[in-house]
């Protein structure tokens, strides 16, 4: 809170009968939003379901490799690792799609769900300071989905490499590019969740927000190919392509190559922009 608003709050406390009012604390809002978030059985189930689906996709692919293994010599095994396939199987494209959609939906529901039920009016009647409240919500959802993403990516890595170890081709976390893949995959969850929150705040309708999540996170990056310079650059600004870049083991082989740092920057800026939209969008709206 600004010093001015705080001074005003002090004055009113002296004047109003609610003299025992404590100083408003942001941490109280975070605690309240966390309680609200974790108390919904539907949220817990969808998050658990998403993690299981991600694990199933990754482990399934690794198991296929294990089962239909044909490279019997040391040379073939070395090639498998060198080509980065072991790493690729640690977190594959299907798992990424599930993760983005699930996290995006959780974010969209966290905001649009309050509009649908009308809870948003109860919420803002209790806490008229809308921006701090939404900032608290953004913090809670981002933190929860980061943990979710870390669990899904970390467990996937461990599970797939353990399965591949059965053929002697699993790689450790110290393998070049391994940390980067796990971190990028984990961060995909909060990035998608924040996107969902921003769209939920703008559209205030659960169905519309879910469709928008799908279009913005998955459809659009697929359309923006690198056959033209501007579509390539626009594509590089999407989390989907940023993840692809970070998941790549070696140097990029595209017509318009970009750096790993650029891909990290895309994830960071995208998250920041989404968070700002989520906090500001509802500020002056009628509810």
């Amino acid at each position: 809170m600004t010093p001015v608003a705080e001074a005003a709050a002090r004055t009113s406390r002296e004047a109003s009968p609610a003299a025992q009012e404590p100083r408003p604390r942001f941490t109280d809002l975070v605690a309240a939003e966390w309680l609200k978030f974790r108390s919904l059985r539907s949220t817990a189930w969808s998050l658990a379901g998403a993690v299981l689906a991600v694990l199933a996709f990754n482990a399934g692919t690794a198991y296929d490799t294990y089962r239909y293994w044909r490279e019997n010599d040391a040379d073939g095994r070395a090639r498998f690792v060198r080509d980065g396939i072991a790493l690729q199987e640690a977190f594959n494209g299907n798992a990424m799609l599930v993760m983005m959609l699930a996290a995006g939906a959780v974010g969209a529901l966290a905001v649009a769900g309050e509009h649908r039920t009308g809870l948003i009016r109860t919420t803002f009647a209790a806490v008229p300071a809308r921006r701090p409240l939404l900032a608290a919500k953004v913090l809670v959802v981002a933190a929860a989905t980061t943990v979710l993403g870390a669990a899904a990516a970390g467990l996937s890595f461990w599970l797939t490499q353990t399965i591949l170890d059965g053929r002697g081709v699993g790689v450790p976390l110290g393998h070049p590019g391994a940390w980067r893949l796990v971190a990028a995959s984990a961060l995909l969850a909060p990035v998608s969740a924040l996107t969902g929150m921003a769209l939920g705040a703008l559209l205030r309708h659960v169905g519309a927000a879910l469709v928008a999540v799908f279009v913005l996170l998955l459809l659009l990056p697929g359309v923006l190919g690198d056959d033209r310079r501007w579509t390539a650059v626009a594509g590089h600004a999407t989390p989907y392509q940023a993840w692809l870049r970070l998941a790549e083991a070696g140097e990029a082989t595209t017509r318009y190559p970009w750096t790993v740092a650029g891909a990290w920057a895309t994830l960071a800026l995208w998250s920041l922009a989404a968070a700002v939209v989520a906090v500001v969008a509802v500020d002056r709206r009628d509810l």
Binding site: M1, A5, A8, A9, S12, S16, A18, E21, P24, K36, S39, L40, R41, S42, G113, E114, T117, G118, L119, I120, R121, T122, A125, A126, V127, P128, A129, P132
Partner: peptide
């Protein structure tokens, strides 16, 4: 203008303004 509202105004607008879960 108040950062927190419940100690100043208590309101029941619509009994449906809750999350059923």
């Amino acid at each position: 203008d108040r950062p927190r509202g419940l100690r100043h105004v208590g309101a029941l607008l619509d009994a449906g303004d809750v999350h059923g879960g």
